[in-house]
Design a protein around this nucleic acid. Structure first.
Length: 400
DNA sequence: AAAAAAAACAACCGCTTCTGA
DNA sequence: CTCAGAAGCGGTTGTTTTTTT
């Protein structure tokens, strides 16, 4: 078969790309400890590789009775021939009762993409906003599904911009992209702080509880946190043209209606409904926003055309972007405009029947003309959508 | 039906960060 | 303030499963 046939006793040195046999690995581990870096645990005689059902049961039973406490000490106490780190990973990524497994919904995928555009490969931060999903699962899903799809569309999965974006070096769009990037950095920092607060809250809430794992207290502790997020972003967004980030000139206008609301569902807490039209547009195009949407996207490939303009529903715009081969293959002017804007900009285009050729023009000055203000209106809407997304999250995020 | 290739994902490794003494 | 241990985190590997040839 075509499976990889590397032997079980070899491993690859990541830094040097060389394979070493297990003996050599052990030697290097010993060397490491002699050089001052101690191994995470005594690996002699410890089992590696896939967990058996029996091991899972032992770990589950132990944690149910005693909590995990010290991971290092846990394996011996639980009667497992594993290192503590392996136990922690198994628990965190697989056995924990408050994690959801199975296919990602379309909404979850969109959240991942949005958050990745903001945060990059910071999977734990992203996972904070995707309840019941682990960072490892999100990371795997990104690497095996989403990244490839973006690449297929000609979008750089790292920057979320078209791969030919290098051509746009001096115009307003590039400046705007830089502004978005600056804001993303700020938001990223904020999310980190927020996650820290949540962790602290968790610690506080569990301070008086026995070592036994308590799902209910863990999962609700974040709710007790006052919603203190996004103060800075709100300050930005409320300040109009006079307010700037330390480095950005991106501004917002006031009094725009929110474009995104959220609801809490059984399967997905952050169901993102964009203002007004999601239901209609879904039914119009036969999109099913649930499990198995991969099929739906494929089926859309032959039915969605960008020549008709953007849909009211931002969600649909994204879906269309995913699904339409024309999007990535056509070479006409409309296509160029879309590609110039980039994938992230697709998220901005939620404002009705706006034509493609209007997008992204004359946007470097604040309030400079109708199109410019429209453009900033869209930017504001985009960031509002992100704000809503992250604002809602702490109340529903699982404790990690 | 068999082989090969691709996809999927659990688990590992090692660096970084946090925490408490 | 410093240090060591513990835990967190992200990149990567390796095995299994599924799809294609």
């Amino acid at each position: 078969m075509g499976r990889l046939t590397t032997t079980k006793c070899t491993w690859k040195n990541k830094r040097h790309g060389k394979r070493k046999d297990h003996t050599t690995a052990t030697f290097y581990a010993d060397l490491h400890s002699q050089m001052g870096r101690s191994p995470c645990c005594d690996k002699v005689g410890l089992k590696k590789g896939p967990w058996t059902h029996d091991e899972d049961q032992k770990l589950l039973a132990y944690i149910e009775d005693h909590g995990h406490g010290s991971w290092r000490a846990l394996p011996a106490r639980a009667g497992l021939q594993r290192c503590g780190k392996s136990c922690r990973l198994r628990w965190t990524n697989y056995l924990r009762p408050d994690i959801k497994r199975g296919k990602f919904s379309l909404q979850e995928e969109q959240s991942i993409i949005q958050l990745h555009a903001l945060l990059g490969n910071r999977w734990s931060a992203i996972a904070t906003h995707l309840p019941k999903r682990t960072d490892n699962e999100i990371k795997n899903y990104w690497n095996t599904h989403l990244k490839k799809r973006l690449a297929k569309m000609g979008i750089d999965p790292v920057t979320h911009k078209p791969k030919n974006d290098a051509l746009l070096s001096t115009d307003g769009q590039s400046k705007n992209a830089a502004n978005l990037s600056h804001m993303a950095q700020w938001e990223s920092a904020r999310l980190e702080a927020e996650a820290r607060l949540v962790r602290e809250s968790k610690l506080r809430s569990s301070f008086n509880t026995p070592t036994t794992y308590n799902l209910s207290s863990a999962s609700t502790s974040a709710s007790a946190q006052p919603n203190r997020s996004l103060d800075m972003m709100k300050t930005w967004s409320s300040g109009g043209c006079d307010l700037e980030s330390p480095t950005s000139t991106l501004t917002f206008s006031e009094n725009a209606p929110p474009i995104m609301t959220s609801s809490v569902g059984d399967n997905l807490v952050h169901t993102i409904e964009f203002a007004g039209t999601s239901g209609n547009s879904s039914s119009e195009t036969g999109i099913i926003r649930e499990e198995g949407h991969e099929q739906d996207w494929k089926s859309m490939e032959n039915s969605v055309s960008f020549t008709s303009g953007f849909h009211h529903d931002m969600t649909l715009s994204i879906e269309s972007a995913w699904a339409s081969p024309e999007y990535s293959l056509r070479g006409n002017s409309e296509h160029v405009n879309i590609m110039d804007e980039g994938f992230t900009s697709l998220l901005l285009n939620n404002s009705g029947d706006r034509s493609l050729s209007d997008s992204g023009k004359d946007s470097d000055n604040c309030g400079g003309g109708e199109e410019g203000s429209k453009y900033y209106e869209d930017n504001k809407n985009y960031w509002n959508s992100i704000l809503n997304l992250v604002n809602l999250s702490p109340d529903h995020s699982p404790m990690l």
